[in-house]
Every structure is written in C-alpha cells, then in structure tokens.
C-alpha cells in the first residue's frame, strides 16, 4: 500500500468528505423513491392522510437510514481492519465478531424473543462483546497480539460459532429454525426508530474513535517496525482499533444480521479512487459504505417485486466476484 500523490491536505480532506456526504444525501433521497410500490412524494407531502406518506416516511425512510448506518459501520470497520491486520482480504466478518453476534442473536430467538423486540439485537451485541474478548485474549501472547494470531483465532472462532448455530438449529422447533434462517440472511426492515437512532449515534462515535487513530493506521499499514520507530505505541493502537472496529461490526450485525462483503468491497474501491491515507479512507469508507448499502437494499426491494430479496444476497452477489478479482490480482502480484 503506497501513499498516492497528491498529498492529502486539510482542504482536500474537507472537500472530498463534503462531496461524498452530498452523494450519500442524494442516495438516501433517491433510494427513498425506489420500491415495489409506486408512491408519490408530492402527495406524501401534501396529504398527511395519504398512503403515500405512510409508505415513504413510515416504511422506507427508517429502512434507508438503517442501511446507511449499517453500511457506514461495516465500511469503516473493514477499512480499519484491513490496515490493522495488514491484509487486503480482511473483512469485518473475518474476526469472529459477527459469528459471536449471530450466536447471541440466535440464542435469543430460540429462547423465545422474536426478532422484532430489542432483545435479539441486545443479545447479539452481547455475543459480539464476548467474541471480542475471547478473540483478543486468545490471540495475545507475551503482552502482544499479532495480526497473524488475531486472524487465526478469529477464523477458528467463526467456525465454532457456525457450529453452535447449527447445533441450536437442530434443537430448535421447526418454526424457530425458519426464523433463525431468515434472521441470519440479514435484513434492514422492521427496526424501531429508537434502535436506528442508537445504532446511528454508535456508528458515528466509532467512526470518530477510529479516525483519531488514522495516522497510527497509516504507519501500521506501512509496517510494524517502522511504526514503532516513529513513535507509535503499536500494541495500544492495535488494541484501540481492534476494539473500536469490532464494536462497530457487533452493533451492525445486531440490528441487521449478516450482511456480507460491504466491509470488503467499499474500502478497496475508495482506496483505488482516493488513495490509502486513512485520514480520508475512514470517513470516505463510512460514507461510501452507507451509499452502497442504501442502493443494494433498494435493489433488494425491487428486483423481484412484489417479493423482496434478502439484502445480504444482493451484497454477496455483487461482492463475491469482486472478492475473486482482488484475490486474483493479489496472486498475480505474488507471482511476478
């Protein structure tokens, strides 16, 4: 990863962020007008009793906003984890965090909490916290946690989590197993305003925390020894980034299930276009991830209308081929 000219100035950072933020606003407004049911914005604004108003502001707006929050969280944490693990194929679901969240959520569903109450998201978040603790402590040796160990422990934890989910599904009733399957596929629909607002505040706090470590990430991405020589407390920076990114992932999975590939594709696209400086990459991945998921969900709503697709299917279908492309490119580099 090389820093690309032109150098990042405060002015370029502000201008690029502003343009991306404007694009996100346009995406939110544009995606609000896309859905399986035709609804008129004019009638929605003029007539408070109209079905158009209910459709646009009660059913589509919360969903579009949640998509922005979740997409932003996944994009930011993906960008941070790729630098932290010095691995371009790192994604938010790699470190076992989403596996832990999924186990927590599924446990709550099987214990009788329906997906609609706040119980399942809270249980999923608790599961993510447990996973963060276990992965971090298990990967630690001699006061240090290397990317290599974090990756391995994360992958093993994910395998354990999926085995646990299969086990729970076997003992669940048929109806519950059905609900678990759908919950795991991911969805942005049906969350309350309170939960969306909480997830949004949380995502912005996480972004701010990570952005404060942007310079550390720049140096870490260039190499651990060099970063230490330049005065970065490597272990401390690593821990802060790991915990912040993981908390973002945990919160996102808790409110939306497993939505894959957003955290992988978006940072790479942003890096290709805007360069690898994390002071820009982190906020840009947030805004880009938000816009990406907003449009992916618009596609999920309309592709098979009047039925809808799980949004995780859309992001995976877009992200899978892109992942292969990255992998091929990486392999080609290794060979030459």
């Amino acid at each position: 990863m090389t820093l690309r000219p032109p150098y990042l100035t405060a002015r370029r950072l502000a201008a690029t962020t502003a343009v991306l933020a404007a694009l996100l606003m346009l995406s939110i407004a544009g995606a609000m007008l896309v859905g399986p049911v035709a609804a008129s914005l004019r009638r929605a604004l003029v007539d408070p009793e109209s079905a158009d108003r209910v459709i646009l502001f009660r059913t589509r707006l919360p969903r579009v906003l949640l998509g922005a929050v979740v997409g932003g969280s996944l994009g930011t944490s993906g960008a941070a984890l790729q630098a932290l693990l010095a691995n371009p194929l790192a994604c938010p679901h790699l470190l076992g965090i989403s596996g832990g969240a999924a186990v927590g959520g599924v446990l709550a569903l099987i214990a009788g909490a329906e997906a609609i109450t706040a119980v399942a998201p809270l249980a999923a978040f608790a599961g993510a916290l447990v996973a963060i603790g276990v992965v971090y402590l298990a990967a630690r040796a001699g006061g240090r946690s290397t990317p290599y160990a974090l990756l391995l422990v994360g992958v093993v934890f994910n395998v354990l989590a999926s085995a646990a989910i299969m086990l729970l599904n076997v003992i669940a009733s048929y109806a519950q197993a059905h609900g678990v399957l759908f919950w795991l596929m991911g969805s942005l629909s049906g969350q309350s305003w309170g939960l969306i607002a909480a997830a949004g505040a949380y995502a912005l706090a996480g972004l701010a925390w990570l952005a404060a470590h942007a310079q550390d990430l720049n140096l870490l991405a260039a190499g651990e020894e060099g970063a230490a020589e330049l005065g970065v407390d490597v272990e401390r920076a690593r821990r802060a980034v790991f915990v912040a990114a993981s908390l973002l992932v945990g919160a996102a999975v808790s409110v939306s299930g497993m939505i894959s590939f957003v955290g992988l594709i978006v940072p790479h696209l942003i890096r290709l276009v805007l360069g690898a400086d994390h002071r820009l990459l982190l906020p840009a991945s947030f805004l880009g991830g938000a816009a990406f998921l907003v449009w992916a969900d618009a596609l999920a709503r309309t592709a098979l209308a009047p039925a809808e697709l799980p949004v995780g299917v859309v992001t995976a279908l877009l992200g899978g081929p892109f992942f292969l492309f990255l992998l091929r490119r990486e392999l080609g580099r290794g060979a030459s």
């Binding site: 399986p36 049911v37 009660r58 059913t59 629909s189 039925a307 809808e308």
Partner: peptide
Amino acid sequence: QISLELVVA
C-alpha cells in the same frame, strides 16, 4: 419475504 410498504399497498 415482502417490504413493509407492500402491506400499505
């Protein structure tokens, strides 16, 4: 699987 807005429609 349907969108909430379809319930309105």
